[in-house]
Amino acid sequence: MSVIETRNLNYTYSPGTPFRRDAIKDISIKIDNGDFIGIIGHTGSGKSTLVQHLNGLLRPASGQVFLNGKDIWEHPKKIREVRFQVGLVFQYPEHQLFEETSYKDIAFGPSNMGLDADEIDARVRRAAKFVGLREELLQKSPFELSGGEKRRVAIAGVMAMQPQVLILDEPTAGLDPKGRDTILGQIKEYQQENGSTVIVVSHSMEDIARCAKKVLVMNRGRIEMFDQTPAVFSRADELGAIGLSVPAVTRIFMILRARGYDVGDNVYTVEQARDRLLPLLKKGGDA
């Protein structure tokens, strides 16, 4: 069954003013339990607007959002509970840390859920472990931490609510290559261990290729593609036309195919490229 479903979702910023802008148009998607979804699209394509509908931060102008088959706006007063079940990590979430210690910051979400102290403690420590925060950092002020560590505290704060669906809006923006790999690896591990549904919004095709099973491509507020990752990446020309680019190795394979070499497609990481090319190249060596 779909954990999240949207039907004909529309949203307009500043309606009734000269600044009126349609942010998303007619979005209907189904996301299955345990899926790992990547959302890509250029700035202004509606990615962030869409994910803010999935946990009820924005209320659709028209259309519906279903969580486990129930319309999340059926009882508007209960929307808070939806936010516990669908956790959203914003862009640059470290700007929103506010507590005296990292521990308290991570505990903020679970405390609001009305859990008892032991359960909160267990969840904070578990979440901290997932994002690789050392025990001694928990008692430090978040403002004493490095940028990458702060980001991890912020992500742990949402993980500690153990949401059924975890959404991260550009979790790797502004990090160096090592920080990027670490955070993506941790999100992947979290997803595998908990079997929860994860949605990652990113500009980086490489990041998406590395972690997502399915990719949703947004363009001008609409869904351009929504399919398995290999199927989306095989449409490089169309992606290029809407200002997105495929990973460099994917382009290498496209050039080789265009030149008539039968190297196959669906390659988007260096490892895949190497494993595909080696047998072909070795064959020549043996001949």
Binding site: A248, R251, I252, L256, Y261, G284, G285
Partner: peptide
């Protein structure tokens, strides 16, 4: 450094290995 250079270099080796031609 670039995809184009890499494809060019690989073409020569694939040619030698008689892939797809």
């Amino acid at each position: 450094l670039t995809a184009e250079e890499c494809a060019q270099a690989l073409s020569m080796f694939l040619e030698a290995a008689h892939v797809g031609h």
